[in-house]
Design a protein around this nucleic acid. Structure first.
Lengths: 356, 356
DNA sequence: CGACTCAATGACATCGATGTCAATCGTCGT
DNA sequence: ACGACGATTGACATCGATGTCATTGAGTCG
């Protein structure tokens, strides 16, 4: 690999002059510049960022720790790929800034994190982002000073700068939309209670009811669908049957995620109930492969993962440049409703908002 | 950030001795080692890979170029995530070797590749893998010598070392299995003709028929499903109706991918045809979110993406160490059948192989 | 007891790029 | 014609780790 000295020799100038041509940080004579550029081309010279890094103490690297890559293949991905979308958002911002991303994968085991951080430190990354696979709380060994850390899709107890999805407002927006379409009896089959998102979303559900003056009926909320297979299939059927047996059964059922909604379609079909004519269905996640392909296509909410990625990266950059003080509370990013055909309009005469 | 000199000063030894402790490449006295290790801990010293790289000319970095990350979010991912799985396989092998992955994303635009390669060269990556999003032919500007390149899920005309999926043998395995279950009239709705995989898979389909002595009927193959939306929906319905109208209609229909199979379920249901009792369905890709969640669950084939990633990485490592000469032809990696409930056994009395 | 061996350690140069400072050259004003 | 000034250019030190070679000292053998 050619060095700056090789180029200098070929061009018949000093290495420093080559450096000036490459970086354009000082005036260089017209003819000299031409000679140097010719030499660079003929030798296919590419400056060594290692050497540059030593002088400048700036690596141009941002480290991302995630399980996105490994997890995808292992768990056959029933949940969509939140972390991947986040990484994408990060990538967008980082690439704009002419920085390079180093991605380290935990392979699903959290214990590897310290060693990954060590590797990043060896490369002197200028900042770190930890991306969680779903909204959760985490606890890290303190990260060395001088290398800012941002948590994405998670937060910790010690107030590390974090960016999280606004589950509560997302669910609220969805339910508001249902109400706007005339629904009042709104069933809700939630995810696992242990998931941080579950109580937040239920709170959002209740917020929307309250804002519309609709009374909350605990019978309409069933909590506990687990993503692992087996028993939950039965749980889902049982929960559905309980709701259907209510004296005043729901006109629409919200699901904890789109996959659950997909199963619900099957269960309703089995019971001879048409979607959406007899019962409407709403999902969560806007997992497009499901939501767009199902018939009827699924109305759902999208958590703003790519946006969260962008926000995390921007937050990190501002910490690196010390432009802004770290926020004390997690940044909450709102998402958006995707309106499709799985929810019927109960008051088509009254003018209601539509769109997607 | 502490340097090796700081550690040396604190421990009261020379920098070289610290280096010896860190790398364990020469004997160090018991007491000296203890002092040094204490100093390292107290200063939180982490060696600079930049400086190391300068001396040794070894970066410990492997570059991967892919569109996996950006594409996922943009195109809402109707095809599964082949490239992501490949990256995962690569990651597995690379991590084992104590190397670090740098992932650059093309953001979907192939023109960015040269600039990404340049960035990688600045970091002096020891090898490069280009990962394509589906099996295709590509053409690169020649990559600088001294940095081996492996193509994954694609190949070029100039014989660059490549690893590709064995579409032909995959489809063949699937059809063999169908035949083993007593099917003889086997419909096939293929993907877009422009896709490299399409003719390969049709060849595999015909291989299996021929091996079993089943006559090939061109009426049973309809080519041309495009993944873009709109017209293809109608194409699918029309192609299906044509097959159903045949005097001797197929007992099973193979689809170009699992998403197509999912749509086919809907179309068959609309026509009042039960799956699998009246017509069996097989997919392609083992896109689990679909294949496992559909009812009945979908029999399909999986292209060996993770394995391809592993192979690519291993191939790259062998090129780097110059252990083996580059293979002249692309390495073809076979996949596997996943047998579920969407294909009925037409000869349950005869003993046929099952499993998956 | 002296030559010799081997373990342990340090001095110094080196990798490639660049910041600092100094040198050179032509031009301009007076 | 002389000093000043700005535009170009180069010499040299430096970033942090490590390869090379020299040095020290303790123990061994004859």
């Amino acid at each position: 690999m050619a060095t700056i000295y090789d180029v200098a020799k070929v061009a018949g100038v000093s290495p420093k002059t080559v450096s000036r041509v490459v970086n354009g940080d000082a005036p260089v004579g017209e003819k000299t510049r031409a000679k140097v550029e010719a030499a660079i081309r003929s030798l296919e010279y590419v400056p060594s960022s290692a050497a540059r890094m030593m002088r400048s103490n700036r690596s141009g690297l941002i480290g991302v720790i995630t399980g996105a890559i490994a997890r995808t293949a292992e768990l056959s991905d029933p949940k969509g790929l939140p972390d991947l979308f986040i990484v994408q958002g990060i990538q967008q911002i980082i690439a704009q800034q002419d920085l390079t991303l180093m991605i380290a994968d935990t392979g699903g085991s959290f214990e590897k994190v310290p060693s990954l951080i060590r590797t990043f430190q060896q490369y002197r990354v200028e900042g770190l982002i930890y991306v969680a696979d779903y909204h959760k709380q985490v606890a890290f060994d303190p990260v060395p000073q001088g290398c800012p850390l941002v948590l994405a899709n998670c937060y910790d107890a010690s107030g590390t700068p974090a960016v999280v999805p606004d589950d509560q407002s997302c669910q609220k927006s969805l339910v508001e939309r249902l109400i706007a379409h005339g629904h009042r009896r709104i069933g809700y089959l939630t995810l696992d209670q242990d998931m941080l998102a579950t109580p937040l979303r239920v709170a959002g559900y209740r917020d929307a009811l309250q804002a519309a003056g609709v009374e909350f009926d605990p019978e309409l909320v069933a909590t506990g669908y687990k993503m692992t297979d087996g028993p939950s299939h039965e749980w889902l059927g049982a929960a559905l049957d309980r709701m259907l047996a209510l004296p005043n059964r729901p006109s629409v059922i919200c699901c904890g995620n789109d996959e659950m909604a997909m199963r619900l379609y099957g269960l309703l079909r089995t019971r001879g109930i048409r979607v959406p004519e007899e019962i409407s269905v709403a999902g969560f996640d806007n997992y497009r492969t499901i939501a767009e392909t199902l018939y009827p296509s699924l109305s759902t909410v999208e958590l703003p993962y790519a946006e969260m990625g962008r926000r995390s990266a921007e937050l990190l950059l501002s910490l690196i440049s010390e432009e802004a003080p770290p926020p004390h509370d997690p940044v909450r990013v709102p998402g958006g409703v995707f309106w499709r055909s799985s929810v019927i309009d109960l008051e088509p005469d009254r003018q209601t908002s539509k769109g997607g």
